[in-house]
Structures are given as structure tokens and as C-alpha cells.
Design a protein around this nucleic acid. Structure first.
Length: 418
RNA sequence: GGAGGGUUGGCCGAGCGGACGAAGGCAGCGGUCUUGAAAACCGCCGGGCGCCUCGCGCGUCCCGUGGGUUCGAAUCCCACACCCUCCGCCA
């Protein structure tokens, strides 16, 4: 949710910023009208309530003989307040619904453009030289580290079994990534992965991404698509002391995505599956510090992949491809020899106060009004995609995979699939 | 799954239809005292929204959440959530 006051105080600049994300002027005007009506209704209702309270208090002070007449006279206030409350509720609901669908204001430095038009900021690592690269499915299945056929029988398309060294690879990568994050001050967390609607709404996945979410039938809970959701919710409805900030976490959890609308896309292997595991970075920071924190999180991501000796590029995502809650986003795209393409392996977003406004996570300010904190999230390591990049880039002609030295202590071996 | 108890401000804890945003205590902040500190004493000490003559003002809402009764609800009624105890089940 954006700040309604911004629209009130500086409508032109706000409209211009939102126009970059495709929100048109008519929608802006509609929001302004709803905001004005809402405030008018609140003022009217407050006034009516003040009158009613005054009348009621007079009854309390009055003697027994005067009361019946006063009570009768007070009846009218009750009806008027009730009518105004009803109208206020309607206006507030309209206001909420309209604002909930407005995406976050883009960061001034975020580039214009649509999906696929991002700016490559830099590349790192050395591109592998491979004569006849196999893709991850060939490599992993040959080593019995991946079983897609049986997963399809048990769970359907876009599910997988990681077995043997495939399963060990996950344990090693996760622990490795968590260690890197912890070195940078992030506290490890295993969060709940079933959450209430409120948490989904608060993080901006509802109402805009509903078709991406798995929902439980009997309990009105959602399976999270990322641990960003429960991590963001960790401090909902809290007023934090400034000296508690920044709060930095690293979560490990499975992630569930319906991938509706992605039919026929990335159907091979484990690049795009309904269930995967991810190590996620999350920070709550003072609003002045979110841009710096964003760079910090991106640096951790680069460290994770850099030390795995994976060649990749950092992309500044254009405003047309941002999620609803993000003001700016950087992806790391690793080179996948099996596809001869750079594909997204991490993503980090600065969601400024968009999530904290809905989740009501604030910080105390000595002088002046308390502030909403800024929240940021980033992928330390998405297990399945990291496995793909790792085995495809470090494969050797005999189908074995060289383990980068940073991972060897975690895996307990120098070569996989031997 | 069954039975019972609970949810009040940063914390503890009173209040059980009218003067209650809520006693009292603790913590915190400011002051008096003191060479300094402690103690003692005095004062301050929640949040949201709205208004504006933008004043360290005014109004309104918030005692788990949402409804209801009433001129008036922290207090009465209903539903839900969460926590605790016991039984059952269970990694």
C-alpha cells in the first residue's frame, strides 16, 4: 500500500511515478476522490459522535426525574451515528480496495521498460568452456540424483525427487548459504509456511497474485510462495525501538507456486517447479537506509554465487517487471550451458514501506510522528536453480561434476556423480 | 478430538453499566536534593485517524478480534482468534 498522504500532498509527482508502472491519470483521480470522501466522512462522524457523547454524559450527571426526558432526546443521536457509521464503512472499504491494487512507487533509479528489458549492471565469474554441455536433467538423472517420472506419478507435473547426491547437494548448499548470511549478521529462521490471508495481504501477494497461490481447503490458510511472507510478518503490528534496527534474518523453507499462466514454459527439469526450497534474506531497516541495505543484500547474493564459481550477470529489473510491492529489484541470472541462456537464480527487492504499512511495522521516533520501517528481501540461494547452475557449469565431459572448493567442506567430497 | 481457565497500556495488575484512555506498582524520561551516585520527593510517561486559528492544540476511535444490547459498554450478550491446564492422539 502506498501512502495516501503522498497522493494528497504531491499528486503530480505521485501520478508521474505511478505512470511509469502503468497506472493512469484517471485511476489517480479516482483515488484522490476516495481519499477526500473518506476524510470528509470521518470528520462528519467524529462530530456526530461528539454530540452523542455529550448527550449521554449529561444523562449520567442528571437526577432521576430529569432522566427519562433526556434519554428520549438522546435517541436521535444514536440513529444519526449509526447511519453515518454505515456510510463511513462503505467509503473506507472502497478506499482500501482501490489503494490495495496500486503498486509501490518505483525507485527513481529503477530503469524504465518491460519484462526482459532489464539493464545488465555487471557480470562475474568465468563462463565455462564446454564442448557438448549436458543439461541438468541429463546429468542428475544419469547419477540417479533426480527422479522426475516417479514424482509425476505421485504429485503431477512440475514436481521432483532429489535423491542420493542430489539430496546431499541441497543440504550442503543450504548450510553453506546460511553460513554466508550469518557472517553478515542475519539470524537463521525456520518460518511457518502456511499463513493466514492477512500475512499474504500484508506482503502484497494478495489481492494481486492470488492465482499463484496454493490455498488449503478446510483451514483458510495459504502455502507461502516464499519465506519472505512469514519473515515480513515476523514483526507485524510492532512498534520497534530505533536501536533494535536493522533486524536481519535468513529463512530456510519450502516454497509453493501454482505457476498458473506458465503452461508450456520451462517444462523440463527442476527450473520451474511447484515446490522448491529457498534460503531467503530479509531485513527491516530505518527508512533512510533501505537503498544501502539493498546493495548490501545484493552483495551477499553475489558472494554466495561468486564463491560457488558460477558465472552470472546482475540485472537491474525495469519498472514494468516489478512485483506489486517492490520499488526496485535486482536479479542475478546465472549462465545455464544446457539452455545457452542466462536464467534468474536470485532476486532481491526493496519494498520500502509498502509491506510495513499493511503489516503495521513501525519504529519509534523521539520527535515527531513514528515511522514505518522499510523492508527488503533477497534470495540467498534457491536450491533447485542453484543446483542447475552448479552442475551445468561445473560438469565435465564424463558426466561428473567438480565441486567448488567453497562447497567441499559442506558436501564432504570434491567430485559429484563419480 | 474432549473438558476447563484466561486475554486490560513496555511489564505486573485493579476495574464487573455512567465522571475510565482506564487505579496502583515496576520500568523509562525530566527535575529537586547530592562533590558524584543511590535513596527520597515532585512532574511527565500508549497508539491510530481526522481537523486546524499548525498549538508541544481540538475531536474521535482503540481494554484479544468482529458483531449485538443500551441514551451510555473494559464492564452485559453472541461468534471467532490466540494463550494456559488436564485427557486423548502424535513426529
Amino acid at each position: 500500500m502506498i501512502d495516501p498522504r503522498l497522493l494528497r500532498d504531491d499528486p503530480d509527482a505521485t501520478a508521474a511515478a505511478l505512470a511509469r508502472r502503468g497506472v493512469d491519470r484517471a485511476a489517480i483521480e479516482h483515488l484522490r476522490e476516495l481519499d477526500a470522501r473518506r476524510r470528509q466522512m470521518i470528520a462528519q462522524l467524529d462530530e456526530a459522535r461528539a454530540e452523542q457523547a455529550e448527550a449521554s454524559k449529561a444523562i449520567g450527571r442528571a437526577g432521576a426525574e430529569e432522566r427519562p426526558a433526556l434519554i428520549e432526546a438522546a435517541q436521535q443521536y444514536k440513529e444519526r451515528v449509526a447511519a453515518l457509521e454505515e456510510e463511513r464503512d462503505r467509503v473506507v472499504a472502497d478506499h482500501e480496495a482501490a489503494f490495495a491494487r496500486i503498486p509501490n512507487l518505483p525507485h527513481p533509479d529503477a530503469p524504465d521498460g518491460q519484462e526482459g528489458e532489464g539493464t545488465v549492471v555487471r557480470t562475474f565469474g568465468t563462463p565455462p568452456e564446454l564442448d557438448d554441455p549436458k543439461d541438468h536433467v541429463e546429468l542428475l538423472e544419469a547419477a540417479d540424483a533426480l527422479d522426475l517420472a516417479r514424482a509425476a506419478k505421485v504429485s503431477g507435473a512440475r514436481f521432483a525427487y532429489l535423491k542420493g547426491e542430489g539430496a546431499l547437494l541441497e543440504f550442503a548448499l543450504v548450510r553453506y548459504a546460511v553460513d554466508v548470511a550469518m557472517r553478515h549478521g542475519h539470524v537463521p529462521v525456520i518460518p511457518p509456511v502456511l499463513v493466514r490471508e492477512e500475512a499474504m495481504y500484508g506482503t502484497g501477494f494478495l489481492p494481486t497474485d492470488e492465482q499463484q497461490l496454493f490455498r488449503t481447503r478446510d483451514d483458510e490458510l495459504y502455502l507461502v510462495g516464499t519465506s519472505e511472507v512469514p519473515l515480513a510478518g515476523l514483526h507485524m503490528e510492532e512498534l520497534l525501538d530505533p536501536d533494535q534496527l536493522p533486524l536481519r534474518y535468513v529463512g530456510y523453507s519450502p516454497c509453493f507456486r501454482r505457476e498458473a499462466g506458465a503452461h508450456g514454459k520451462d517444462t523440463r527439469g527442476i527450473l520451474r517447479v511447484h515446490q522448491f526450497e529457498k534460503v531467503e534474506l530479509f531485513s527491516f531497516v530505518h527508512p533512510d537506509e533501505s537503498s544501502d541495505e539493498h546493495e548490501r543484500i545484493l552483495a551477499i547474493e553475489e558472494e554466495v554465487f561468486g564463491a560457488l564459481e558460477i558465472h552470472a550477470q546482475v540485472v537491474d529489473i525495469p519498472v514494468g517487471d516489478l512485483g506489486a510491492s517492490a520499488a526496485r529489484k535486482f536479479d542475478i541470472e546465472a549462465w545455464l550451458p544446457g539452455q545457452q541462456a542466462y536464467r534468474e537464480v536470485t532476486s532481491c527487492s526493496n519494498t520500502t514501506d509498502y509491506q510495513s504499512r499493511r503489516l503495521r511495522t513501525r519504529m519509534r521516533v523521539e520527535q515527531g510522528p513514528n515511522l514505518l520501517v522499510h523492508t527488503l528481501n533477497g534470495t540467498a540461494l534457491a536450491v533447485q536453480r542453484a543446483i542447475i547452475a552448479l552442475v551445468e557449469q561445473h560438469q565435465r565431459s564424463d558426466g561428473t561434476v567438480a565441486v567448488p572448493s567453497a562447497l567441499q567442506p559442506y558436501l564432504g567430497r570434491e567430485v559429484l556423480f563419480a
